[in-house]
Amino acid sequence: MQNRAAPAWTSDHFFAGARACIPVAISVAAYGVVWGVLAKQAGLSLLEVMLMSGLVFAGSAQFVALDLWTATPSTLPIGPIILATLIVNLRYLLLTATMRPLVRPGTEKRSAAAMWLLSDENWAMTVGEMAKGRGSIAFLVGGGATVWCAWMVATVFGRLIGSAIDDPTKYGLDFAFTATFLALLLGMWKGKADLLPWLVAALVAIISAKLIPGSWYILTGGIAGSFAGAIAERRRGYAHQS
């Protein structure tokens, strides 16, 4: 069903989203530098770094791709890289679905195209705005533009200085990726009701990481947490009705 109360696209919403995502964009830039450094060590050229960051624009998937990358183009495992990227990014099916209430009638194609700029960071900020009765596709795109620019500049910078930084962990840059998501989680905390799905997601992800090779733990943890949250929400609904 189309939501006719969805807000219209305005430049004010766009710039509000761009400003709101500046703090997380700084964290994104920090682990973007790490990715750029690792990309240099993996043998990616500057052009390859620019194309991957600009077109793929998915930090977790790009980190996974680096694990599979080889310096020799003739032995590059294209199939496994595409499959790994698909698996890691499947969560975006769930994330983009939550944006449906913001889509105005007649703007479906434009809104679908705007989802290319959706990332974990600007999605979380937009969901926070929706919880306050605000939020819009323009807000999402504004935040996405900020994050995209930060990611592009940081990964290119990391690639350029890759020869000078032999060990990113020495500077604590390896923790930037984790720190960003911890900050987003704390910002989305609404109360004890969030604890169950978070714990379920974490537990399933940890078990999956131990038992299943690759990055399946991201997908299994996300799905398990979503189901746990849906079940808990339904039970709360039944409790209120009774």
Rank of each mutant, 00 (worst) to 15 (best):
M1N: 12
M1K: 05
F14R: 05
A18Y: 07
A18Q: 11
A20V: 05
C21R: 08
I22G: 09
P23T: 09
V24E: 03
A25T: 08
V28Y: 06
A29P: 08
Y31T: 06
W35S: 00
G36W: 03
G36E: 00
V37M: 02
A39N: 07
K40N: 13
L44G: 08
S45I: 04
L46R: 12
V49P: 02
M50F: 15
L51V: 12
L51A: 14
S53F: 06
G54E: 10
G54W: 11
F57R: 02
G59M: 08
S60C: 08
V64C: 03
D67P: 04
L68I: 06
W69T: 11
T70I: 11
S74M: 10
L76P: 02
L83C: 11
T85M: 13
T85S: 14
L86D: 07
V88G: 05
A97K: 01
R100H: 14
V103I: 14
V103R: 01
V103E: 07
R110W: 11
R110V: 13
R110N: 11
R110E: 05
A114D: 06
W116A: 12
L117H: 00
S119L: 04
S119C: 08
S119A: 14
E121Q: 15
N122K: 11
W123Y: 12
T126S: 09
A131V: 07
R134N: 11
S136P: 00
F139R: 02
G143R: 12
T146V: 10
W148H: 09
W151R: 06
W151H: 06
W151K: 12
T155S: 10
F157G: 04
G158K: 06
A164H: 10
D167C: 01
D167P: 01
F177G: 03
T180W: 00
G187C: 08
L196A: 10
I207Y: 03
K210W: 13
L211F: 09
G214H: 08
L219S: 00
G221Q: 00
G221I: 04
I223T: 06
A224L: 05
F227I: 15
A228Y: 00
A230S: 04
A230T: 13
E233N: 14
R235F: 15
Y238D: 15
